[in-house]
């Protein structure tokens, strides 16, 4: 009882999402601090043996809901599987990926259980918490031990807030892909699997959304793992402007990323967005091209090794965190970088 739970997101060919495994690693650490078990919920179709992929991350129990109609994901059946399981198991913490699925499901679960949910946490810690609580007409100090500190940027990344929900369970949080580190705890870790009768948790009336058509492609890039990133912002000016960035990236074996402004302008795919509401990256080298440096962008790349800003505005905020600030136009600077690299790279 009162375990730490992770909702496992299951994609095409029953591949477990990276973020779910990252959360298992985090969940294991939280469970150790609390002295409780780490448990997972898997909802999908054809899940035989899926527990074996989770045990090595230190998972003690894997709850499986297996039905052909549970994949692809739709809101109501997954909600009821999780909510009705939680009513029995009474977890103290529930972690979900801040993915499209996690952000579709998490709020519904928190609403159904009347528990707090914090979106897009960047840190999760266990700590004590003191709060004034109203009792009758008076306020009294109340001490809560071992609460989940849910730490997240807010207001476009201008502040970092620590959120606590002491009076309600589970304490729920979503975390974006790549924010936590994934680590195998023990290849031979022993857990147990619990296969639930789906019909007991999910009423037939839940299957009302039909997925008519689906196109999922494997990621076209590996921004998260790239050691060099060339990123473009509003200063790139157009979709064609990004061609030059791709050219440089190809040459120096980099991936191309973008700021929200460039994505919103429709110049580049949404999945290449770097920042608080996109991907968080930590490359060795980050080349910011025409990026002004809104704080929510900086939140997603400030841990880069070397930051090179190319901008014709010497006052662009990003220049303040850059190691090198090249004052110039992209169409002037980028070809020079390419040319020098071509000539001098061994």
């Amino acid at each position: 009882m009162n375990s730490v739970f992770v909702y496992i997101e299951i994609g095409e060919q029953n591949k477990i999402a990276d973020v779910s495994l990252e959360l298992c690693t985090k969940g294991r650490k939280l469970a150790n601090e609390l002295g409780v078990k780490l448990e997972c919920v898997c909802v999908g179709s054809g899940l035989n043996g899926i527990e074996k992929e989770l045990y090595p991350y230190g998972v003690d129990r894997v709850h499986v809901f297996d039905d052909a109609r549970l994949f692809p994901y739709t809101s109501l059946p997954h909600q009821d599987a999780v909510v009705n399981l939680f009513k029995e198991e009474k977890p103290q913490i529930c972690l979900l990926g801040a993915t499209v699925i996690g952000r579709d499901l998490g709020p519904r679960v928190s609403s159904a259980l009347h528990s707090g949910l914090t979106a897009d946490c960047t840190q999760l810690e266990i700590d004590d918490f003191d709060m004034k609580v109203k009792e009758g007409d008076d306020f009294v100090d109340k001490h809560y031990e071992k609460q989940l500190m849910q730490i997240r940027p807010a207001f476009g990344g201008s502040i970092i807030a620590t959120i606590v929900n002491p009076e309600h369970r589970p304490q729920m949080a979503t975390v974006r892909d790549g924010v936590m580190k994934r680590e195998i705890l023990d290849e031979n870790y022993k857990g147990e699997v619990v296969k639930h009768e789906v019909g007991k948790y999910v009423p037939e009336t839940d299957y009302i959304v039909k997925v008519l058509d689906r196109h999922v492609e494997a990621a076209k890039h590996n921004l998260k793992g790239a050691s060099i990133i060339v990123a473009g912002g509003y200063g790139v000016g157009s979709k064609e402007g990004f061609d030059l960035l791709f050219k440089l990236a190809k040459e120096i074996h980099a991936e191309v990323g973008a700021s929200r402004a460039a994505v919103d302008a429709g110049w580049i795919d949404h999945d290449r967005q770097i920042g608080q509401t996109g991907v968080t990256v930590r490359p060795k080298v980050y080349i910011a091209c025409g990026i002004s440096g809104a704080i929510q962008h900086i939140a997603g790349m400030k841990e880069s090794g070397i930051i090179i800003s190319i901008n014709n505005d010497p006052n662009a905020p990003i220049n303040q965190i850059a190691d090198y600030n090249i004052n110039g136009n992209l169409e002037d600077v980028l070809p020079k970088l390419i040319k020098y690299y071509k000539q001098n790279n061994k």
């Binding site: 500190m149 620590t162 929900n165 220049n319 303040q320 965190i321 190691d323 090198y324 600077v333």
Partner: peptide, 23 residues
């Protein structure tokens, strides 16, 4: 509201030592 804000910390944007180059 189940959630309580325990603390809010403003982010300070500190300048690094930056080398400024021309094109």
């Amino acid at each position: 509201s189940p959630t309580n804000v325990k603390a809010v910390k403003s982010i300070v944007f500190k300048a690094k030592e930056t080398k400024t180059l021309t094109s």
